[in-house]
């Protein structure tokens, strides 16, 4: 059952190993505790992908439920959060197929405003928002496998070796996909510059 024990807020990431082994034995309560460790970070990453608060929440929820269903497949070779993120990317891919995420909502704009420097001018804030939206649009336009690598590298901050373990391919393949993704992103950026000019 779901626990609202405040003491669980003190759970550190290092403690999650024990939780994980309990979860893999089918302990639902342990999984809820594990969710408390990761759901904030996961939601943050979902927000980066969806740029929409309600979509991000749905995505995080779907990810956690999918993780529970396939928890036995987690082999511990990569970090648990990386594994969660790779599930989330698969769910996000399905979301993209169903419909393109809506443009920035008011809520997202507010959340972006919160992170911006309070002293920044409105023009700077606008620029930051546009830049964030453009970067996400570029990511969305990448093929799934390339997007997965870029996302895990820059947003989840995994090493290429960790990405290879999470995705289940060789480091060489990861390098190849990353290079292709960077080339594609560079071209998109160049196209945008040309359009602006």
């Amino acid at each position: 059952m779901f626990s609202l024990n405040p003491a669980l807020n003190a759970i550190k990431l290092e403690d999650s190993t024990d939780l994980l082994s309990r979860v893999q034995q089918g302990d639902a309560e342990a999984f809820c505790d594990l969710c408390r460790v990761y759901d904030g970070r996961l939601l943050r990453q979902a927000m980066a992908l969806c740029q929409d608060a309600s979509l991000a929440e749905d995505l995080a929820q779907e990810t956690l439920i999918a993780a529970w269903k396939s928890i036995r497949r987690y082999n511990g070779r990569c970090r648990f959060f990386t594994w969660l993120c790779s599930i989330m990317l698969h769910r996000y891919r399905k979301l993209l197929r169903r419909k393109r995420p809506a443009a920035l909502t008011k809520e997202t704009e507010d959340s972006l405003l919160n992170v911006a420097d309070a002293a920044a001018s409105p023009a700077t804030l606008n620029e930051m928002k546009e830049q964030a939206a453009f970067l996400q649009k570029c990511l969305d336009n990448l093929p799934h496998k390339q997007r997965q690598i870029v996302y895990l590298r820059f947003y989840v901050e995994n090493s290429l070796e960790e990405i290879a373990l999470a995705v289940g391919c060789s480091v060489g393949t990861v390098k190849s996909r990353l290079f292709k993704a960077l080339e594609n992103l560079r071209k998109m950026r160049a196209l945008k510059t040309l359009n602006v000019e």
């Binding site: 779901f2 904030g40 939601l43 943050r44 927000m47 929440e57 995080a60 529970w68 919160n114």
Partner: peptide
């Protein structure tokens, strides 16, 4: 990216689904 605290409703939804 802003630090987000997962809302209680997310945890409740996940818990009930699980």
């Amino acid at each position: 990216l802003p630090e987000i605290d997962a809302p209680a409703r997310l945890r409740q939804k996940v818990a009930s689904a699980i």
